[in-house]
């Protein structure tokens, strides 16, 4: 087979164009002088006073730029909702990935609570150590993924509870923000005592927000996993 057949002229031209573009981009970017004074350093300086959180990334995510996180949670919700619209639920739905293995089933029974607990731990310690709402939420969702893989069609999620979790965790985030605003501060501002750096019950509003974020992410990703793992098989249609 000739090269022309395998690759095609258009592909080559495209590749040339894009490489040229990347080269130009690199040329410009390499010239740049990276700045050493930035928003991040300013925020580091005031981090201890304003949040008492041991993890500066958490402070940024949940507090200094909490609104971005709200937007991100919204996007997550929106996508999952959009996926839900597109996928019709019907009786022919089945788990397309499933391993019928007793060992796996028993192991999963043991592991599942541990995974969820670990996820909750990661969420709760978001302001103290690396980790946080997203990471913990995804860990919890991975527990559910394990359940789907192990039990297949016989595992049933209570969708009512799940959607309630989804709704309440998202709403909780916003309501905390509004409460803060009503308490006299800014939206998502800190209205709780900051506590002492390094303690679990510290940093005011941060852990609360991260818990909501974590639950939201866990619920959304679980729904996502269910949508994808349990669909009408494309090949059937």
């Amino acid at each position: 087979m000739s090269l022309k057949k395998t690759v095609g002229l258009k592909t080559i031209l495209t590749a040339l164009l894009i490489s040229f573009m990347s080269m130009l981009l690199l040329g410009v970017i390499m010239n740049a002088a990276y700045t050493h004074t930035s928003l991040g350093y300013d925020l580091l300086k005031i981090n201890t006073i304003s949040t008492q959180s041991a993890n500066a990334v958490t402070s940024v995510v949940t507090y200094f730029r909490g609104l971005d996180t709200l937007g991100e949670v919204t996007i997550l919700f929106l996508s999952i909702f959009g996926i839900g619209i597109g996928i019709e639920r019907s009786d022919r739905m089945k788990t397309i990935l499933g391993y019928d293995s007793t060992l796996l089933k028993i192991g999963t029974k043991v592991l599942f609570p541990l995974i969820v607990l670990f996820g909750l731990y990661i969420i709760a310690h978001g302001h103290l150590s690396p980790g946080g709402g997203f990471q913990g939420g995804v860990i919890i969702a991975s527990g559910f993924l394990l359940m789907f893989l192990a039990y297949g069609d016989s595992y049933d999620l209570d969708h009512k509870v799940l959607s309630l979790f989804e709704a309440l965790s998202g709403a909780g985030f916003i309501l905390v923000g509004i409460l803060a605003a009503l308490a006299g501060g800014a939206f998502l501002g800190n209205m709780l005592p900051l506590g002492v750096l390094g303690k679990l019950f510290s940093s005011g509003i941060l852990p609360i927000i991260y818990i909501f974020v974590g639950l939201k992410v866990a619920a959304e990703i679980t729904v996502l996993v269910e949508y994808f793992i349990r669909t009408q098989d494309a090949r059937d249609a």
Partner: peptide, 16 residues
């Protein structure tokens, strides 16, 4: 997409 990237490349080239 090709149009977009070609346009970008041309403008970038002219600017640089």
């Amino acid at each position: 997409g090709l149009v977009i990237f070609a346009f970008f490349t041309i403008l970038l080239y002219m600017g640089v």
